[in-house]
Nucleic acid binder design. Structure first.
Length: 649
RNA sequence: GCCGAUGUAGCUCAGGGGUAGAGCGCUUCCUUGGUAAGGAAGAGGUCAUGGGUUCAAUUCCCAUCAUUGGCUCCA
């Protein structure tokens, strides 16, 4: 007998070799039907795998990510089986479960190119195969046998993978006519897979290496019920409606022009207003935190970037130097603001008493992104960073870093960004030639970030090898409507640029010391931030950010004059209003998408003209009654103030 | 940059070797009682660009450009 400990710490005895499925059965028939995978001593197992020693277990159903993982991973194998049947000779790469669904990387047999028209056939085949209810069988095999097996099939991607595994750790999973190298876990059989959608195709480099062959990646998702699939697809469609590229067009915020150039957004009046609101919001915060504005030019001499190290690192993949009529003069469009700010610091000597110095600039920079990378406003070639560089003493570093975290918290709170990931990006210690600066400085910088985050109680993930080439960083990632992660706020500790620019301050000991530099951008870039903001708010911005807060609707032409007076009044009291004097039936006008997003509607007609008032309607809250204009102005201003105070508290 | 897809009216899209269509929007008119109305008529397109095949190309082929789903990259 073995002792099985459950998550609630209760212990029960089972016979040797009992399986997860049997444990579930002993608890209840319903559970046995729903259980998909099991954690045995924190290791994910199949529910059909015998347990032979005392263990702590946790059963996973669809609602657990572990359950979905097994479900989707099994679906990936099912898809591979379907592909093997449909396209004989197909070579298989890897096929994992992902956050939403699964994929398989393959090289189709006989030079076949899989296109979208094939997806349905794959789907159909998968369902057909799933109905066979083949069981997934785990088998541990010696390395030799594993290599032989895949060699015979000519599956050279698999043999490459096996070659790197240790003997004794290799397991095969078999179901129907398909055998795969796999760690598992899997479902007991294909039976629960009832609904399948093969979503999309993509190219993906084998093992993520762009020098290696590009395989065909097929994405899919599956569910235990058709209804769940239908719901998922509807949800996906809804998310697509929030796409900032679509809303940006509908709301007249920005456009792109082929003639101006790809990745170079043109901000329309409404978009510019929204952006200015955000900028002035941050500027106010920064004044409180002791930042000082600076302004620097859009170009700088090539030598500036040679000093900073950026030219060596990115020069050949950037916009190429601008040449002047004079021989030998070369300027670069600035791809970042730091070197300029370093030169500002250097313009005069500094005492330890002067520090920290915080130079802030909404600096527009230009980076030559690969054409395939461009994506709406989230990845562009010209963008404005809400940049600042803090020059401080070592004893001030942690405190300054924490203050920047505070600013980011404040902004995220103001805009209701709750779901973010704080990611600490450190260097890859096995590949140090990618980075500049001494090991000692890197250690110090990395430690400072980790400590500051701990002291702030910030929950972080740590990624090795994701650091900037000059220093480690803390990034705040937010997901867009379709679940893609984008880096917004970023804070970076840098010991290296101060060294390269030979920045100094005179310490208490009357000797020269090197300041530490913090790069930071709470929004990241205005472009990307606005993009994510649009998707988060579905285009309905908070009142204090809306490009237009009020739409004025005269009931008929007779009241246009009065409506214009109302407009003038509001404009003078700093409320952003638009007049809709098309004088059509109100119901018709209100259907207008654009007007629908404006939070307040003022109706003026006979009644209002007589009493010199307006009828106020608030989006989603109905009639607010009639008000004098002064009252209304006060009403809106106090709503905005309350909103901002609430954020501040 | 790479792999796949797409490019037709302001928007969303259908069509197809014989020089184009719908819905919404727009313009004009009619109906309507002031809170997400109904109807009629009309204007709008070198079918992304450049080549090729053909008696004839928006449609087929090739190239280019742009957009897009991913991969790689992201100072």
């Amino acid at each position: 007998m073995i002792k099985i400990t459950f998550p609630d710490k209760s212990v029960r005895e089972f016979k040797d070799g009992t399986t997860g499925y049997e444990i579930a059965q002993s608890i209840g028939a319903m559970l046995a039907k729903d259980v998909l995978s099991i954690s045995v001593n924190n290791e994910l197992w199949d529910i059909t795998r015998p347990i032979n020693s005392d263990s702590e277990v946790k059963l996973h159903k669809w609602d657990d990510s572990e359950g979905k993982h097994a479900f989707w991973h099994s679906s990936a194998h099912l898809m591979a089986e379907a592909l093997q049947e449909l396209f004989p000779g197909t070579k298989f790469g890897i096929g994992p479960a992902i956050e939403n669904g699964f994929y398989y990387d393959i090289e189709p047999g006989n030079g076949k190119v899989i296109t979208e028209v094939d997806l349905q056939a794959i789907e159909k085949k998968m369902i057909e195969l799933a109905r066979l209810k083949s069981s997934y069988n785990r088998r541990e095999v010696p390395k030799n046998e594993a290599l032989n097996f895949f060699n015979k099939k000519g599956d050279y991607y698999k043999t490459e993978l096996i070659g790197e595994l240790e003997d004794g750790t290799i397991s095969f999973y078999e179901h129907g006519n398909f055998t795969d190298l796999c760690r598992g876990p899997h479902l007991a059989s294909t039976e629960p897979i009832k609904a399948v959608k093969v979503l999309s195709l993509a190219g993906a480099y084998w093992r993520g290496d762009e020098k290696r062959k590009q395989l065909t990646r097929i994405y899919g998702i599956s569910f235990p019920k058709q209804k769940m699939l239908d719901e998922y697809l509807i949800q996906l469609e809804e998310a697509q409606k929030r796409d900032h590229r679509k809303l940006g067009k509908e709301l007249d915020l920005f456009v792109f022009s082929q003639k101006v150039g790809l990745g170079l957004p043109l901000w329309l009046p409404k978009g510019a207003r929204l952006r200015e609101r955000l900028e002035s919001f941050l500027k106010k915060v920064q004044v409180k935190y002791g930042y000082e504005p600076v302004i620097t030019p859009h170009i700088g001499q090539k030598a500036l970037y040679e000093t900073s190290g950026h030219y060596a690192k990115y020069g050949s993949d950037s916009f190429q130097p601008i040449h002047t009529p004079a021989e030998g003069e070369e300027f670069l469009l600035k791809p970042m603001n730091c070197p300029h700010h370093c030169e500002i610091y250097k313009a005069k000597p500094h005492s330890y008493r002067d520090l920290p110095l915080r130079f802030a600039e909404f600096g527009t920079v230009y980076r030559y992104e690969q054409s395939g990378e461009l994506h709406g406003l989230t990845r562009v070639r010209g963008f404005t960073q809400d940049d600042a560089h803090i020059f401080c003493r070592p004893d001030q570093l942690k405190d300054e870093f924490k203050k920047v975290i505070d600013i980011i918290f404040y902004i995220f709170k103001a805009l209701d960004f709750k779901d973010y990931i704080a990611q600490i990006s450190l260097r890859d210690k096995n590949n140090t030639e990618k980075y500049i600066g001494s090991d000692e400085n890197w250690e110090k910088a990395e430690q400072a970030i980790v400590e500051a985050c701990n002291e702030k109680g910030l929950k972080t993930t740590v990624e090795m090898g994701e650091a900037a080439f000059y220093g480690p960083k803390l990034d705040f990632m937010v997901k867009d409507a379709l679940g893609r992660k984008w880096q917004l706020g970023t804070i970076q500790v840098d010991y290296n640029l101060p060294e390269r620019f030979e920045l100094e301050y005179i310490g208490q000991d009357n000797a020269a010391h090197r300041p530490i530099m913090i790069h930071r951008a709470p929004f990241g870039s205005m472009e990307r931030f606005v993009a994510v903001l649009i998707e988060h708010t579905a285009g309905k911005f908070p009142l204090w950010l809306t490009p237009e807060q009020v739409v004025i609707l005269p009931v008929s032409e007779k009241y246009n004059e009065y409506a214009k007076n109302v407009l003038n009044f509001l404009n003078n009291s700093d409320i952003r209003a638009v007049l809709d004097d098309r004088n059509e039936k109100i119901g018709k006008k209100i259907r207008d998408n654009e007007l629908k997003r404006i939070p307040y509607l003022l109706i003026v007609g006979e009644k209002e003209l007589e009493s010199n008032e307006v009828s106020v309607r608030k989006q989603g809250h109905g009639d607010q009654g009639t008000m004098k204009l002064e009252e209304f102005a006060g009403f809106i201003n106090s709503e905005i103030e309350n909103m901002l105070n609430e954020i501040g508290s």
